[in-house]
Design a binder for these strands. Structure first.
Lengths: 377, 377
DNA sequence: ATATAGAATGAATCGACCG
DNA sequence: CCGGTCGATTCATTCTATA
């Protein structure tokens, strides 16, 4: 191989863009105007929760909303929060690729507003994921249950977008070979991971644990993907993205956070390509036609195949079809036919005999795939 | 005691009402018109989830999943679902007592709409509680995380209603003396608990486990309270309410569900009063005025109290106030004053000397409470 | 009768690709 | 955009049939 590779070259190089792996300073909606349509693969958003508004929120006409607490103004607050939410979600939606997905984290204070806005804007909820905290803050007054979790909503851009990334096999492997559930257990961000300023005070009030972001990105992105965080804060998304070989782009208004995040991310060592290789399933493997098994000589026409319990039988024909009961068709169609089902995976249903025992023809497909690999692999 | 008590008399007898412990047949909003304002203590609602399923789903073994495709779960649009939600929530709010609370259970399909409507109508969210399922259905296509939980929202009628029932100590005791968290683990409803018809088919597609309802009612109701379930279904709420010595009222449209629920509830044996006694903390214990400690002779005026480390001192006065540093006031106020704090629990802060060691005056309160108990207790 | 294996089932928004 | 075809995919528990 004489091709020179750059150090740290990412598996799927994104187009050169001035904004890639940077933090854009400014208001979320305004700053996102600097990004083109369909330019990011995944969005992770940790929007402000505070419905008391404290100068954080503006009405669509940019007038400030007073922080007040009687009932009518509470309603006003919700209205203002909804307007704020719709505005940033719309800006995010424009820059999200058609097969992109978005994560939003929140608590009961704001997550219902966020979920409603997501649905109203056409996003399609894939899961709500619960972050169960191992060490949540107690309820000091003893008037409620200990608030021991936060909620993340994971949604695709459109209902019909089926091509989003979900690393199912990797998630399953990471969970002792059981499907990854919608409730995740992680400690809150403390200790060395928690950014502190020169006074020892925490830099950001709601810094999220890197483990949480790591699972989010491992589940829903591929190496080289671009991850947008519109409320970048202390830069957890950027730090984890860099470590995992993903690109990031952040938006943040406060210079103090930008400074802290920039230093933090600069210190991150990206993992190597080998560590980043993601477990993939059969879906990702090259497709093999059944006829090629015959063409390669692994199966001879006329061979009798049966199911694992020898209840059904079929004869292999030279054209790659099976014949049984006076009927013929593909391995899948005939597998379904003999069982009286609508569908069947012929690769795993039909077996051939070798050394007195039955083996699935999927074994032959595996051998074909071996032969297809380049010599040096 | 010569007062004759009826067998099974409830500790807090509700007013005689024709609708108490019955199922009202009809549409939720219309049927609730038969209840007066402020007539129920707690509402548990399991509304349609608006699942929006399209094609069939098969398991990997090609068996078909029995989907929730009932007519009552079909809505034209999110807008139609929101209108439905607001209507039944408003009807519920009218009949809910000022210090009442409401629980609504849902999934990501509908819970964001419900939460938004609750907030918009003036309910005040106290917690969102996650029901983690021990045995959820898998995600058969491997395209998402296994949907392993449902969400319950617990809300008070108004932001300012602080007098709602929360049996904090009972919940804590039930959780190995740790605060009850917002994530609960229960199996789904199967086996003998699951109602079946004469064909062996499930009576209701979404029957909830009794353990879930039991925790809800133990947490947020007192014996004798009235619990409304506006989507009564197979009557889990009624069955658990009866077992726990609470009154219920249900609303249900379909006669088949009403019949099944009626028979189910008739077979329920209520627990006895002793089993129902809720572990209560200091909050619910009879209030003791400090002056009664003096009146009862347990402390004499002029006694010097100090904090546990003898840093501060105060003198007991006959009127039940403390004097220190030329100032005087309640045990709480003086505890705060000497420490320079805004608040202080005087019962645990101030100590008296007995046999050479310091004991908190809370010990004297405990003795007073002992004396207050009836002879037979 | 008891033990074991196989079947059934639960609030589910559950493809990709080619022509 | 539609239709046809390939072929990928499940966990905990209970119930039922068989040995």
């Amino acid at each position: 191989m004489s091709v020179v590779r750059k150090v740290n070259e990412l598996p799927q190089a994104a187009p050169q863009s001035s904004w890639l792996d940077t933090i854009l300073k400014g208001d979320c909606v305004a700053a996102l105007e600097r990004l083109p349509d369909y330019s990011v693969d995944v969005i992770f958003a940790d929007p402000p929760y505070n419905l008391q508004l404290e100068g954080d929120l503006h009405r669509p006409d940019q007038s400030k909303v007073d922080a007040v607490d009687d009932h009518w103004d509470q309603f006003e607050s919700f209205q203002a929060y909804d307007a704020f939410t719709r505005a940033w979600l719309l800006a995010c939606r424009r820059v999200l690729k058609p097969n992109g997905t978005i994560w939003v984290i929140g608590s009961y204070h704001n997550i219902f507003r966020v979920g409603t806005s997501l649905q109203d804007l056409g996003f399609w909820v894939l899961n709500d994921v619960i972050w169960r905290k191992t060490n949540p803050m107690p309820n000091f007054r003893g008037r409620r249950f200990q608030n021991a979790h936060e909620t993340m909503i994971w949604a695709s851009r459109d209902q019909k977008a089926k091509g989003y990334t979900f690393n199912y096999e990797a998630m399953k492997a990471a969970n002792d070979d059981l499907q990854m559930r919608s409730d995740w257990l992680f400690p809150i961000c403390t200790g060395h991971e928690r950014l502190k300023d020169e006074n020892g005070d925490k830099v950001h009030p709601t810094q999220k644990p890197e483990a949480l972001l790591a699972r989010v990105l491992m589940a829903s992105t591929k190496p080289g993907d671009v991850v947008l965080d519109p409320f970048f804060g202390s830069g957890t998304t950027g730090a984890v993205a860099k470590r995992l070989g993903r690109h990031f782009v952040g938006v943040e208004r406060e210079q103090a956070y930008i400074d802290a995040a920039t230093a933090r991310i600069a210190a991150v060592e990206p993992l190597g390509k080998a560590e980043l290789t993601v477990m993939t399933g059969k879906r990702a493997e090259p497709r093999v036609a059944f006829v090629s098994v015959i063409e390669s000589g692994l199966l001879r026409p006329g061979t009798v195949l049966s199911d694992a319990r020898r209840r059904h039988a079929a004869i292999v024909r030279a054209d790659g079809t099976l014949a049984a009961n006076g009927d013929a068709g593909s391995i899948h169609r005939m597998g379904a036919r003999v069982q009286g089902l609508d569908a069947c995976n012929g690769w795993t249903f039909w077996h051939y005999e070798e050394a007195g025992s039955l083996k699935p023809i999927d074994e032959l497909r595996r051998q074909i795939r071996q032969q297809m690999l380049p010599a040096g692999a």
